[in-house]
Nucleic acid binder design. Structure first.
Lengths: 196, 196
DNA sequence: ATTATCTATAGATCTATAGATAATGC
DNA sequence: ATTATCTATAGATCTATAGATAATGC
């Protein structure tokens, strides 16, 4: 249990928060440790004392975000319709934090390349999201909200794809698209389609 | 009309093809001109004779791909249902050219950042795609295939988001997801929903 | 003793330009 | 004359390590 001193913990927190902004802005490869260090007000070597290389820093940032994000996506033991509305709530929340959404878009885009340090992280993340959403849909079928025999995995993949795809469009051209309304429209149509 | 010699035209073509692969693999910021030059078998300075800086090279690659891609997305004066099936055909085609899909995913991800050289290109591209798809849906409504009063723009945004989002999942975890089938399922559900 | 920092620096890049030489085609 | 190439290089990075000094807390 080598925890470190209090000042170190605070510093690490500050580095993570700063690194998140930089990675979100410039991606993994476009971000420099020197710039993160400068914005976190310590030397570049000082930064590397806390995170011993760039790759570990990125992974730490992703985990750091995941903690909060996973909680939000953990749909809990609600019904299927409530879970879909909760997803719409996630989109609504995301529309108020473009910086975080951008982190996932930029890193997620880069991470499609095998060999990118975030590749495995992204794969695990999608698998977990899919499992959560599919489970909620299946619960909906058991509760009689949705027709039995629905393809829960396929619908989960589509829901996640829709969220990601709309986010990209929104980040590139925020005035053009009303992400929240468009996603809500999808959820409404889906609920109608899945009705028993 | 300063066109250049034949050897130059061929060389430029080769550079573009090589650069496309590199940008698709490492993104804009992760790609080096030296590596492109090496794979295109000329010196790095020789490359910069044809494209005078890195940004112009990326834009040339994007235009180069767009030419082919736009034709594929130009849904022509078909009916609405035929247009949706054509989109499914695009997805089917994409599933056979992961390299190209990866270019758009990687560059598209990076390009959400204002200031990225591909940002304007991406915005124009989405606007054009949306206009094409929405027009086809409206034609479908006029032909009586779809109910009148459908929100053509919102459905276009969703179709494009679905394509992009599924592509990302597929690139990250190709064995897990059957992109073609999952997209076809969306199109089927959509046709049912839009029936008059 | 462990942890937190710093300065200095090695060693690799990377982009873009300068300036020379050779090939092409009007 | 224009175009296509090349070598050489300036000038900026960038990551990571070595090694020293200071602060912390058992």
């Amino acid at each position: 249990m080598k925890r470190g001193y209090a000042s170190g913990t605070a510093r690490r927190e500050r580095i993570l928060a700063t690194a998140l902004l930089e990675f979100a802005e410039h991606g993994y490869r476009g971000t420099s440790l020197a710039r993160i260090a400068e914005r976190a007000e310590l030397s570049q070597a000082g930064l590397l004392h806390h995170f011993k290389n760039k790759e570990l820093l990125l992974l730490a940032v992703l985990d750091y975000r995941d903690e909060l994000d996973t909680r939000r996506f953990d749909l809990g033991p609600t019904g299927g319709i409530a879970a879909l509305r909760a997803l719409a709530g996630v989109v609504e929340h995301n529309s108020r934090v473009p910086g975080l959404v951008q982190l996932f878009s930029v890193i997620g885009g880069e991470a499609v390349t095998p060999g990118h340090p975030g590749h495995d992280w992204a794969r695990r993340r999608y698998r977990r999201l899919r499992a959560n959403v599919a489970a909620a849909l299946r619960r909906g079928a058991e509760l009689g909200e949705f027709r039995a025999g629905l393809d829960a995995e396929a619908h989960a993949d589509r829901l996640i794809a829709m969220m990601d795809g709309l986010q990209t469009q929104w980040l590139i051209d925020p005035e053009r698209i009303d992400m929240v309304t468009v996603f809500n429209g999808y959820v409404d149509d889906l609920i109608a389609t899945l009705r028993p």
